[in-house]
Amino acid sequence: MDSGEQHLSSYATLALVLVALLVLTGITVAVSYVDLGRFNVPLTLAIASTKVSLVLLYFMHLRYEGRAIRVSFIGTICFLAIMIGFTFWDVAFR
């Protein structure tokens, strides 16, 4: 957006996002009682990532931001992935 005017989120959208977040929290707690072997951790992280994406996109308005914030955010996440990925790689295959 060039105007600098921030997108105005409606209460309905925000409430819908909240409901989705609460449902996902319920699912992640329920799943934690079931032993899925090696799939527990990836599934838990997938749900957490979905929740984080919802908060970022709607509560933090990332969806409606301009290019500067979007690109720098993706850059930060790439850096984080490299930091976590390469460190963990070293530890796991030492």
């Binding site: 992640t28 707690v29 934690s32 032993d35 899925l36 527990n40 951790v41 838990t44 992280l45 749900i47 957490a48 929740k51 984080v52 908060v55 970022l56 509560f59």
Partner: peptide, 15 residues
């Protein structure tokens, strides 16, 4: 909130 979304499953919910 974002940070807690990761902290909660990592500490409280691991099998």
């Amino acid at each position: 909130d974002l940070i807690w979304i990761f902290v909660f499953p990592l500490f409280y919910l691991i099998l």
